[in-house]
Each structure stands twice: as structure tokens, then as C-alpha cells.
């Protein structure tokens, strides 16, 4: 999954316009995503990437969009 695709996916799930979502956007402060929305988002992304969320949770970066993307990509490798 490219970052562009990842960004699209986040936009689809969170209903935030894709142009507002950048690598360094903070989920909480910039995108205003709350805790359950974040879990919902993680579950959807993990399902798309065929990863078990509870196995990788402790290694994921929840802070920024870019950070989460990098940590998911690393898990898949």
C-alpha cells in the first residue's frame, strides 16, 4: 500500500478531506480523531493489510499519519 492509498483509506474511514491528511498530521490534534474512531480506523487498516491488530498494537505509532503508515508497512515486511 502506498502512502497515497493509505491517505485515501484514512479519509474514507474518518470522513476528513484527503487534502487535509499529511504525513505529519497528528490524529488527535490536527484531524480531531477520538479514541474509538482511532480503534475503528486501526481495525479497518489492519483488515485491509491482513494483519492481526492485537499482535502488533504495541509496535504501532498512533501519533501521526506518517508514523502509523511507516509502522504498518514495517509490520507487513
Amino acid at each position: 500500500m502506498s502512502f497515497e492509498e493509505f491517505r485515501q483509506l484514512i479519509s474514507e474511514i474518518s470522513k476528513i478531506p484527503v487534502e487535509q491528511i499529511n504525513k505529519n498530521s497528528s490524529f488527535r490534534n490536527d484531524l480531531g480523531i477520538d479514541s474509538l474512531q482511532m480503534v475503528n480506523l486501526l481495525i479497518e487498516v489492519a483488515a485491509k493489510l491482513k494483519l492481526e491488530l492485537h499482535m502488533i498494537q504495541s509496535r504501532l505509532d498512533f501519533q501521526t499519519v506518517g508514523g502509523l503508515y511507516e509502522s504498518f508497512v514495517k509490520e507487513r515486511e
Binding site: 479514541s35 474509538l36 480503534v39 486501526l42 481495525i43 491488530l53 492485537h54 498494537q57
Partner: peptide, 10 residues
């Protein structure tokens, strides 16, 4: 819902 989310992650 919060408990379920916590459980799914941990």
C-alpha cells in the same frame, strides 16, 4: 465499547 476496544488491542 471502550472495554471491547481495549480488549481487541491487548
Amino acid at each position: 465499547s471502550l472495554f471491547r476496544a481495549l480488549y481487541l488491542l491487548t
